[in-house]
């Protein structure tokens, strides 16, 4: 795969591992489930990744903890702080991912400073070497993404773009064009965290995303339980579930409990 201009379109680009897997499963009529877990949280976090894969996740998001996670609410802040206190580093999380040996494609979710500190090129190569399929960088918007995307494209790492309820339509189309893997539709105006009710904005942004792209559209932020996941999947291709899972892990769920929760969501989406 050659280095493409970052705003190239779908006709000229290779399809990465995450996107291929998600497109294939969508074509088979399946709703997509991507759980998020904070890397380095607890001694058994790699086992949790394996449990999520076994429970039927279509992709797995692994957070590389950062000291200043501005897009995250209290649960993932707490998980990040605990993981950092337990000695998690980008390198240790990548080593854990590599050791998990799961077939399910893995996307790392982190903040751009951890990449910038290592250097775009070096971090793209390290992600590829660890077997990471994709990267989700919530503080790297389209206008700033060019240098990273060039290196990620060259290394075969898919950069997932995020779309927000405040994103205008014209911009949405450009995000979708640059996006790889899937289009991450942020379901509400707010940081990550569980919400008792599904936000109206979740269905609205999913609909708007579906109108501009053929990429799989997954809704994340504020997706807390099976019934919310099902409701969103009436419109979207799938969901990202983070805080609801991480809260259970913080409360001591372990690999079994984590797998059980994701298994329930799987069942709800499949039935």
């Amino acid at each position: 795969m050659s280095v493409q201009a970052p705003h190239d379109d779908a006709r000229t680009r290779a399809t990465g591992r995450l996107e291929s897997a998600l497109r294939e499963r969508r074509a088979a009529g399946r709703k997509l489930l991507v759980p998020y877990v904070t890397g380095g949280l607890g001694a058994d976090w790699v086992d949790i990744v394996r449990a999520l894969a076994a429970a039927g996740a279509d992709g797995i998001e692994v957070g590389i903890p950062f000291s200043d996670p501005v897009m995250d609410g209290p649960v993932i802040q707490e998980a990040s702080q605990r993981a950092l206190a337990q000695g998690a580093t980008p390198r240790s999380v990548l080593a854990g991912i590599a050791s998990a040996e799961v077939d399910t494609p893995i996307a790392v979710m982190t903040y751009y400073n951890l990449i910038a500190r290592a250097g775009d090129k070096r971090m793209a190569a390290e992600l590829a070497r660890a077997g990471v399929a994709a990267a989700i960088l919530p503080d790297l918007p389209l206008e700033e993404a060019r240098p990273w995307c060039a290196e990620a494209d060259a290394a075969g790492v898919e950069t997932v773009m995020l779309a927000a309820p405040t994103t205008p339509d014209e911009r949405l189309a450009r995000l979708a064009q640059r996006g790889r893997g899937f289009l991450y539709a942020v379901g509400l105006l707010g940081v990550t965290g569980e919400r008792s009710q599904l936000a109206e904005s979740a269905l609205a942004i999913a609909r708007r995303c579906k109108q501009v792209t053929d990429l799989p559209v997954l809704v994340g932020v504020g997706v807390s339980n099976a019934s919310q996941a099902r409701a969103i999947c009436e419109v979207a291709d799938g969901v990202v579930v983070g805080s609801a899972l991480v809260r259970r892990i913080l409360e001591g769920a372990g690999p079994d409990g984590a797998g059980e929760f994701i298994g329930e969501l799987r069942q709800a989406l499949d039935s």
Partner: peptide
């Protein structure tokens, strides 16, 4: 792009870009 030399820019979540 909001840069003074190589410093500055706008590294915010998509929700805040508009």
């Amino acid at each position: 792009s909001g840069r003074f030399g190589s410093f500055g820019g706008r590294f915010v979540p998509e929700s805040l870009v508009p």
